[in-house]
């Protein structure tokens, strides 16, 4: 998994529990290089949102990081985020990590203009004067592709469409020149045309700002076009990871295959919709071996005999499937 690039985020053996010590994320390790885009994919309840919330220090009140490390940056700039103090978090959120979420309207104050809300960030976090903050805000609105940015500055959230609000939130998120942008289902609620525009915008910002991107989504198709690497999560664990084209071209974990079958493939002629039978395991559910085994079409006795470790397949690819250990091909 070694990345030749400078490291932006390194998560090691992360364990998160919710409620009464129910383990929801376990044994999660990954890295994001500078300017790299990584997709985190899984069904509802796979632990993908908890993982990114842990990196933002925004776990729900019942959530807790039980173990592992989350390190932002490298060398003298490195900050350990697990157990960080309030003041450390303030610094990190003010200038090093930005985030956008699924429902942009609920993250904006409905009674203030969107320009005011962006300028406020610039004044508080960057220390700009009122005039300079206004000018910079208009510049940022233009950069995220809002037409007539000077007019948008004076509009209230209810006057803008969902796609425009998401652009406003992206402008706010990048206003502090972060190293890492986390997008949690940021395009899920948008229609396909706007979704494609927002994904293109994220790609462009990544190039112009050397921004690292963690894109969290349940839709593999979104990842396919926007991310260099993909992490597939299931039942709180990463079950497969690697360069996107290779993982999608030759998936090694049966769950990745299952996700590909249900994903929005661009085949207009298809006349059947696949489903993954059964339900994912609940948080805290104890399972003897592979967590996907009860739903896996190719499960065998070896799958539930004991914990399944991560296998390094080389070339930056990993999988958590007994067949890789036994060196057996996964039947199609």
């Amino acid at each position: 998994m070694a990345s030749p690039r400078e490291r932006t985020l390194a998560v090691t053996d992360l364990q998160v529990s919710v409620g009464d010590g129910l383990v929801a994320v376990q044994d999660v390790s990954f890295e994001i290089g500078r300017g790299e885009s990584v997709g985190l994919v899984g069904e509802s309840g796979s632990g993908k949102t908890l993982t990114c919330r842990a990196a933002l220090g925004l776990l729900p009140t019942t959530g807790r990081v039980d173990g592992g490390r989350i390190v932002l940056g490298e060398g003298p700039q490195a900050v350990e985020l697990v157990g960080a103090r309030r003041s450390t978090w303030d610094g990190v959120r003010a200038g090093r990590i930005g985030a956008v979420f699924q429902d942009p309207a609920s993250y904006l104050n409905p009674s203030l203009t969107v320009g005011h809300q962006l300028a406020e960030q610039l004044r508080v976090k960057r220390g700009l004067r009122r005039r300079a903050a206004h000018d910079r805000a208009v510049e940022l609105f233009a950069e995220v592709g809002l037409h007539d940015p000077a007019a948008v500055f004076h509009q209230y959230p209810h006057q803008l469409s969902g796609g425009m609000l998401q652009r406003v939130l992206i402008a706010i998120a990048i206003s502090c020149e972060p190293e890492l942008l986390i997008a949690d289902e940021a395009t899920t609620a948008l229609d396909v045309v706007i979704q494609a525009e927002i994904l293109a915008l994220l790609r462009r910002l990544r190039e112009t700002h050397a921004l690292s991107l963690l894109l969290v989504t349940h839709d593999l198709a979104v990842v396919a076009e926007s991310c260099e690497r993909v992490l597939v999560m299931y039942g709180g664990q990463i079950v497969e990871s690697g360069p996107t084209a290779q993982v999608l071209g030759d998936p090694q974990h049966p769950y990745t295959r299952a996700l590909m079958a249900v994903a929005t493939i661009g085949d207009w002629g298809r006349r059947r919709l696949d489903v993954i039978p059964g339900q994912p395991p609940a948080a805290g559910e104890e399972m003897p071996g592979c967590r996907f085994a009860p739903r896996c079409p190719v499960a065998s006795a070896a799958c539930t005999a004991g914990p399944v470790p991560v296998t390094d397949l080389g070339g930056g690819r990993t999988t958590r499937c007994v067949r890789s250990i036994l060196d057996e091909a996964v039947p199609a």
Partner: peptide, 10 residues
């Protein structure tokens, strides 16, 4: 619309 729809058919 169809051109914007994401796909895994790379």
């Amino acid at each position: 619309l169809t051109a914007s729809a994401p796909t895994i058919a790379l």
